[in-house]
Design a protein around this nucleic acid. Structure first.
Length: 275
DNA sequence: ATGGTGGACTATCCA
């Protein structure tokens, strides 16, 4: 029998930058145990499609899987307990073919849900598109996504992923000290907010956590004690279309995952809603 | 104090 009797129509979607799906395959079991998701969206799988560990993931109950991977870098995947179909006509962002997006239709209770899984370019170290082409790529990627969703709108839709931008003051450990740091510069924040407004996206995590409270999903590897320093950023996001905002029922940021053996520098994030 | 660590994969690139 279904476990969640009181909310049997609810759908739980998780997103995680796994930073190598092959290395951290065992940690997916932890995620499933702790969050009980119906759908998991992964970023930075760093795995060519022919080497994707389908069997291990199927054994966790995710019988439906769509993947878009390449050798060494990037790579996204959608793992689902419910049937999913690939959205074939979505753009190849910036024409690079670099495996940063997977759009699917999810066969959910109450009808199809459009689900977009993004891995936005990190953008390099220097926040200047002339000096640093990676930063230009990041801004262009966000601008292109903004135009596309602005033209299409979003209904019964969810957008998740590592967007590599922390938009709000309390999405970073020090707003002032990160104003010149890629991920929190004003031009990136303006871009991300514009994208969010483009199709009326609703920030599902800030639906639950007030904007004056610190909220992070990523802590650098380059810290002796990540928890003590707590210099985090909220780089991972879940947005829902306006028509779903009122149907959100819970959220979870799995901070304990940062202490798993061979942890990713990102932690899984989940929301539950009734579509 | 301008470092530090981690993953992919073989000399560095990327985060």
């Amino acid at each position: 029998m279904a476990k969640r009797g009181a909310s049997r129509q609810a759908l739980r979607i998780a997103t995680w930058n796994i930073n190598s799906v092959r290395l951290r395959l065992p940690l997916l079991q932890n995620l499933v145990t702790d969050l009980a998701p119906d759908v998991i969206c992964l970023q930075e799988t760093k795995c060519p499609d022919e080497a994707f560990p389908h069997e291990g993931i199927a054994a966790l109950g995710f019988t439906h899987r769509l993947i878009r991977g390449m050798k060494g870098y990037n790579g996204v995947a959608v793992l689902s307990r419910l049937p999913i179909t690939l959205r074939e006509d979505d753009p190849d962002w910036c024409g690079k073919g670099d495996c940063r997006h997977l759009g699917v239709m999810l066969d959910a209770p109450g009808g199809p849900v459009e689900l977009h899984n993004f891995y936005v370019p990190a953008g390099g170290d220097i926040p200047d598109r002339e000096a640093n082409p990676k930063f230009g790529h990041k801004l262009d990627f966000v601008a292109e996504a903004t135009r596309w969703f602005d033209a299409r709108g979003a209904k019964r839709a969810v957008l998740v992923g590592d967007l590599n931008i922390a938009p709000l003051e309390h999405d970073v450990w020090s707003h002032k000290q990160l104003l010149d740091v890629v991920s929190h510069t004003p031009i990136e924040v303006e871009g991300l907010i514009g994208w969010q407004k483009a199709a009326g996206w609703h920030d599902a995590l800030r639906h639950f956590v007030p904007e004056d409270q610190k909220l992070y999903t990523w802590w650098s590897y380059r810290a002796r004690d990540w928890r003590a320093a707590d210099r985090g950023r909220r780089l991972d996001h879940i947005w829902v279309s306006d028509d779903l905002a009122g149907k959100l029922s819970r959220h979870q940021v799995l901070k304990d995952a940062r202490d798993w053996p061979q942890a990713s520098d990102h932690v899984p994030v989940l929301v539950e809603f009734t579509p």
